[in-house]
């Protein structure tokens, strides 16, 4: 077939295009992913029993803010990467800022504590549960994020996959924070930060296969 015939085929009665579609789809995906992750955490693991006590609430808010900060920043870059040529946009390294902040805070809190408590502060009570739960809960928001990005047209699939993984990891950590009773900053830095990075690497590995168009 001649290309001109194809052009004629495509350009007879074209529909007007919804310009906000890319961003709106990603926001819907973030919302749906968050609700699902929260549901899995609350119904699967249960909210922490002391959630509403004043001591616990502050820690929950801090952990949730860390995770939400990561997801929101990552979503901003995911919205750019979802468009052709979006990988040329600079400053995506800003997503490292929440990680650097939590690591700095963790270092300070370790510095202020006696070294005999370091082990307890870093390893906590439930490090293994955290290590397993965050990546598993992340699967659902990751799938939703990949679905949303596939509606658009990323041209750097590994990096786009990585940012989809980062968004999903952040969403999952946000949900898991409602269950987790380990409240030390070093614990959050190592196990939350570490598992979110793990989700990012998994996303980068799967991106080229999942996002091809």
């Amino acid at each position: 077939m001649k290309t001109d015939d194809l052009v004629d085929l495509l350009s007879t009665n074209p529909e007007p295009v919804d310009r906000g579609l890319v961003v709106r789809t990603l926001l819907i995906a973030l919302g749906a992913g968050s609700i699902l992750a929260l549901g899995i955490t609350i119904f699967g693991l249960g909210a922490r029993p002391d959630m509403m006590t004043s001591g616990a609430l502050g820690f929950v808010v801090a952990k949730v803010s860390f995770a939400v900060g990561i997801s929101s920043l990552a979503l901003v870059y995911l919205a750019k990467l979802a468009r052709p040529g979006g990988e040329r946009k600079p400053r995506s390294y800003l997503v490292a800022v929440p990680f650097l902040v939590i690591v700095a805070l963790a270092a300070i809190s370790l510095g202020l504590a006696p070294s005999s408590r370091w082990n307890k502060m870093i390893v906590g009570d439930e490090w293994l549960e955290c290590l397993v739960s965050i990546p598993i809960i992340a699967i659902v928001p990751f799938a939703v994020a990949i679905w949303a990005v596939r509606q658009a047209a990323p041209t750097n699939l590994a990096r786009t996959g990585a940012f989809a993984g980062l968004v999903a990891g952040g969403v999952s950590a946000m949900a898991y924070a409602l269950h987790c009773t380990d409240d030390s900053l070093p614990f959050v830095a190592v196990w939350y930060g570490g598992t979110i990075v793990l989700c990012t690497l998994a996303g980068a590995a799967m991106g080229p296969r999942l996002l091809r168009w």
């Binding site: 295009v17 310009r19 040329r88 047209a153 168009w213």
Partner: peptide, 18 residues
Amino acid sequence: KRHTYDPAEPLTPWVHAI
């Protein structure tokens, strides 16, 4: 994929990336 074009950006790099 024309809905992924951001009118705030130039068109040429978008076409080139595709």
